[in-house]
């Protein structure tokens, strides 16, 4: 059980925050992260339209052999993606708390520009307290 990484994707599909917490993920450049986040945004848009009956909020969990991605879509279109081991049970609660930290430390900070990369010290601190320190 481990939490590997966190992404925050803005409503246009841009990666605004990315952080790794544990060894285990492939080392990627920031450019590759951006591309992956954009791709996930597209996949999510497709899954939200595939629902056979009624509307759908899209993919919640994407599971692979060695890890899973849990996606939280907010009312404003911002997506929080948590990359964890398959057995990790707390992914959803952690994502809710990340959303809370985002609302507090990012959206209420006058020095943050919406839809732009998050460079807010307070958010980093809150995430560290929540998930634990990691690498970059």
């Amino acid at each position: 059980m481990a939490i590997f990484g966190l992404w925050v994707i803005n409503k246009a599909g841009g990666l605004v925050y990315q952080r790794n917490f544990a060894e285990g993920l492939a080392q990627l450049t920031s450019n590759e992260h951006l591309v992956l986040a954009g791709t996930l945004h597209g996949i999510h848009a497709i899954t939200s339209r595939l629902s056979p009956i009624g509307s759908s909020s899209g993919a919640h969990v994407i599971e692979a052999e060695t890890f899973k991605m849990t996606i939280l879509l907010t009312a404003t279109g911002t997506k929080f993606v948590l990359i964890t081991s398959i057995a990790e049970p707390s992914a959803n609660t952690v994502l809710q708390k990340v959303y809370e930290a985002y609302a507090d430390a990012v959206m209420k900070n006058p020095f943050h520009t919406p839809e732009m990369p998050i460079r807010t010290e307070g958010f980093d601190t809150r995430i560290t307290a929540l998930i634990g320190s990691g690498h970059t």
Partner: peptide, 14 residues
């Protein structure tokens, strides 16, 4: 409480 001052404005206190 929710304000993080950017480094280039570290003198500022809201």
């Amino acid at each position: 409480r929710n304000i993080s001052i950017p480094r280039d404005m570290s003198q500022l206190s809201c």
